[in-house]
Amino acid sequence: MIERNAAPRKIVDLLVKVLSSFAALIGIFFLGWILLVVVQKGSAAINWEFFTALPAPPGIEGGGVANALVGTLIITIIATVLGVPIGALAGVYLSEFGRSTRFGALVRFNINVLMGVPSIIVGLFVYTMLVKPVQHFSGYAGAVSLAIIMLPVVARTTEDMLTLVPNALRESALALGAPRWKVTLNVVFRAAKSGMITGTLLAVARISGETAPLLFTALNSPFWPESLAQPMANLTVTIFNYAMSPFAVWQQIAWGASLIIMAAVLALNLLARVGMSGGRK
């Protein structure tokens, strides 16, 4: 450094500090703005009828999203039941058996890529497998596509959480003569329990806001969900359809539904965060 005077460098340092903190503030600003708009517009739409009534025909006042609430719950639960066990098993394999193997690295890599696959492609894939052959949209196709999206998320978090379990625990159980599966199930799982619940919560949060894959699979429906083999009402596609419609009443309902979904997703995220910090301790 030829420059002897420190003042210019200090000024640059200060400038960067101010600029970068300003940039960080912009992020918070947008989050706040989005939350504010959704809460403001959404709370106006929410009333008793919103939770209990079926959608009203276009142009008619009132109507609710009760069927979509139920549908979203059903689809999410089935997706969780399908996706979590497979994802968790894959995660266990990665952490317990394939931690430093070449195959493990490959799988980890593929799971990362799978996590990045745009959700609409997953939807289209399930469409070609489960919708096209039978020629109608169905609730179970929606659940399968969400399960596929969930799988890598669960696998990754499970692996992360199991890696945190100290090796001494595993070794002492193995030294007692317990077989590998029992060690995993009774020792490692128990130690990583809160972490794995966290992972599942995060995965559920991730899929409960998905819209694109449901467009091709569960579609939507103005009726109560009666069978898994029928198109099934759900909140996100309802939001999408209503938001793009020209009717003010429908748009308002879209805001109400957005508030519900957002509150649920944020609550799951925060809950998972609390669980995570509990698990790390």
């Binding site: 992020g27 979904i261 997703v265 944020l266 965060r273």
Partner: peptide, 20 residues
């Protein structure tokens, strides 16, 4: 936490925010 929340907001809500 803020980053997680932002990442967690469903895209359909970002779209709605975009429209309005």
């Amino acid at each position: 936490i803020v980053i997680d929340l932002m990442a967690g907001i469903p895209s359909v809500i970002y779209g709605l925010f975009g429209i309005i």
